[in-house]
Amino acid sequence: MKARVTVTLKTGILDPQGKAIEGALRALGIEGIASVRQGKMFEIELDGTADRAKAEALLKQAADKLLANTVIENYRVDVLG
């Protein structure tokens, strides 16, 4: 079973890396971009054939305990099957 955990910065948290990327895109002449926020994406493969609910609970635990710092980050769990 494959899954994806997407970690993004919470609204209102300053993202200097996103700002730098935004500036670089502007410098490249790519127009029409209002803002960029940088996040992280984890591709995760699960052992065995755990059911969906179990997989989601396990990934939520992984995100809460390590993958995201919930002081500044939000995350989303997608079980891809």
């Binding site: 948290i13 300053l14 200097p16 890396q17 730098a20 710092n69 002081v71 500044i72």
Partner: peptide, 16 residues
Amino acid sequence: CEAGLLPGVLMRNQQL
């Protein structure tokens, strides 16, 4: 901070 022994986070320096 990451261990939860102190509150908050150290982010990338504002000036990058």
